[in-house]
Computed example of a mutant assay.
Amino acid sequence: MSTNETSGSAFGPGTPDAASTAAAQLRQKMASSAEGFLGSAAWVPWKSADDPEGGSIAHVMIRELPFVPVFTDPADLTASVPGTEARPVRMAELVTAVPEEFGIVVDPTSAETANFLQADVLAGIRAQMRGEISGDDTEDGDPAQG
């Protein structure tokens, strides 16, 4: 799938290999840990006000499953999903905002850098964020409160 140092997918031709770009640094931070992912902000396609569902997050179907595409480079989003507005969103906010049946795919334009977080993975992250699952041996919270 690679030609001339680029890779691609159904979302577009991909981007040139550039390990030191800001997008690559963001991908590295997002992949480093759950905290790195949740503390990151990336570009999310937003349906324009002209769309009947305007004002909501755009999504795609991949193998009959709904995903929100997330881009570490706003230029990739603009090239890959024309006609949508790009908004920076903190991943912690996105994880809690997407419907439970949705997953997130980070950088879907590149077969090499795409990272899929399935709906069940996001459910586990949400549970951990609510304190229902302890990530370590810290003080136990009361899941009944909140």
Rank of each mutant, 00 (worst) to 15 (best):
S20L: 14
S110W: 01
A114N: 07
D137L: 09
P88S: 06
M1I: 15
A41F: 11
A58P: 06
R90F: 12
M129I: 08
V70R: 00
P143M: 08
G83H: 00
N115P: 03
M1R: 15
Q128N: 12
I125P: 00
K29N: 03
L77E: 02
P66N: 01
V68P: 04
H59C: 09
I125L: 14
E100A: 11
G124A: 11
G103T: 03
M129D: 00
A119D: 01
A75Y: 04
A127P: 04
T138C: 04
G135N: 12
I104A: 04
V81N: 03
R63Q: 11
E139T: 10
L65S: 13
L77Q: 03
L117N: 02
A75V: 09
D142M: 10
E5I: 09
T78R: 10
A18I: 08
F67W: 02
G146V: 09
T72V: 06
I133Y: 06
D137V: 09
T138V: 11
P16V: 12
V68T: 04
A119V: 01
A75N: 08
D17T: 12
P69D: 06
A34F: 06
V105G: 04
M61Y: 13
E139I: 05
L77C: 05
G131D: 08
V121K: 03
A123Y: 00
T15I: 14
E64V: 05
T138F: 07
M30Q: 07
L122V: 00
E112A: 11
A19F: 14
A19Q: 15
T109K: 09
A58E: 12
G36E: 04
A49H: 13
A31W: 08
D140Y: 10
A123W: 00
K29C: 04
T15Q: 14
T6C: 14
L38R: 01
V70A: 02
V105E: 08
D142P: 06
I104V: 15
L122M: 07
P99D: 14
V98E: 05
Q25W: 06
T78P: 00
L65D: 13
G141P: 11
L38C: 02
I57R: 03
T72D: 05
A58D: 13
N115G: 11
S7I: 15
N115H: 15
